Simulated assay, not measured.
Amino acid sequence: MIRDLRICFVGDSFVAGAGDETALGWVGRVTAAAWDRGVALTAYNLGVRRDTSADLRRRMEAEVLARLLRAGDAQAVVLSFGVNDCTHEDEMPRVPPEVTEENAAALLGWAATRWPVLMVGPPPVLDDAAHDARVAALSARLEALCAAMHLPYLPVHAPLAGSGAWRNAVGRGDGVHPDGAGYAALAGLVEGWPPWRRLTTA
């Protein structure tokens, strides 16, 4: 019997798959791979362009509950955000890193009391070195938070920053978001991550 699983993917434009000409993003690709493994994964993509952790904190509870509240026990939540928090507006980050950490703790804590929770870190920003440095620092901060909360965290910043496939894919895109080949590289990291495989194996 095929295993039924429902997962809310909550995050920003990278979760939404912005820029992918195949309209799959990384979420669509890992969903298809789960089906290949015999898991009937219903993926609820709750990625919104330009969303910060503060935006997610305002909307996540209602959006996730609407999809998972009466869905049985085969459910999970995957969170991924951070690049927009680090964007500077008026020479200040849209969300200061300490506030991002507070928001992340609240989001993760709320979800983890109800379902299995995974977090995928923010990807690199290739068109702005200062912005990218802030993203890298935030990724490390979120990784430490997840470790303290005993929740799985996948750091994708460093491997993607060193990936020619990702860099070329962003170059073909808008300078921030990759095309389909870049999302395939990100999906490969998620697919090779043991916590994800344990969650999505029949």
Rank of each mutant, 00 (worst) to 15 (best):
A144Y: 00
G28K: 07
F81Y: 13
A34P: 01
D174H: 11
V117K: 06
V48H: 07
S163F: 05
G47C: 07
G188C: 08
D174N: 15
T201M: 04
A136S: 12
A169P: 09
L199G: 00
L5M: 15
A16L: 13
S163Y: 08
A66Q: 15
V30Q: 00
T113R: 15
H150F: 01
D132L: 02
P93F: 04
A140S: 13
V117A: 07
P159E: 14
V27I: 04
A136P: 00
W26K: 05
D36L: 03
V77D: 02
C86A: 14
P124E: 11
P152H: 03
A18E: 11
F9D: 03
M149I: 01
L65H: 10
L126Q: 05
L41P: 01
T200A: 14
D90S: 15
H157R: 03
T100G: 11
S53K: 07
D85A: 10
D51M: 12
L145G: 08
P194N: 08
G121D: 03
H150A: 15
G28S: 05
V135H: 09
E63N: 09
A43C: 11
A23Y: 10
A106D: 12
T200V: 09
A62V: 14
A184F: 05
M92P: 01
L142Q: 10
L24S: 09
D12C: 12
L107I: 08
D127V: 10
V83T: 12
A140F: 02
G25E: 03
H131W: 15
A74S: 10
A40T: 04
M1H: 08
L56D: 03
P93M: 03
S139F: 01
G162L: 09
L160C: 08
D20I: 06
I2A: 14
V78C: 00
D132Y: 05
D55N: 13
L145W: 03
V190F: 03
A112E: 00
L142N: 04
A18Q: 12
L46T: 10
T113Q: 15
G72V: 00
R3F: 07
L126C: 05
C86E: 10
F14Y: 14
G164A: 14
A185T: 09
F9W: 06
A130Q: 14
D73H: 12
P155D: 04
A202E: 14
A33W: 11
D174P: 06
A106E: 13
R141I: 00
R58L: 05
A104I: 00
I2S: 14
D179L: 10
D174T: 09
E191C: 06
A16V: 03
P124W: 11
V120I: 15
W115D: 01
G175W: 14
V176N: 07
R167A: 15
A40N: 14
E63M: 02
A106P: 02
W166L: 15
W35L: 11
S13K: 09
V95C: 05
D55E: 05
F14I: 12
D85S: 08
P97D: 06
F81Q: 07
P93D: 08
G47P: 13
P178G: 06
E102H: 10
L186R: 02
S139Q: 12
L138E: 04
P122W: 12
L56A: 07
V77L: 05
V120L: 10
A105P: 04
R114V: 05
V120Q: 01
G19M: 12
D4Q: 10
G171V: 09
L65W: 12
G173M: 03
N84R: 10
R198C: 02
T200W: 06
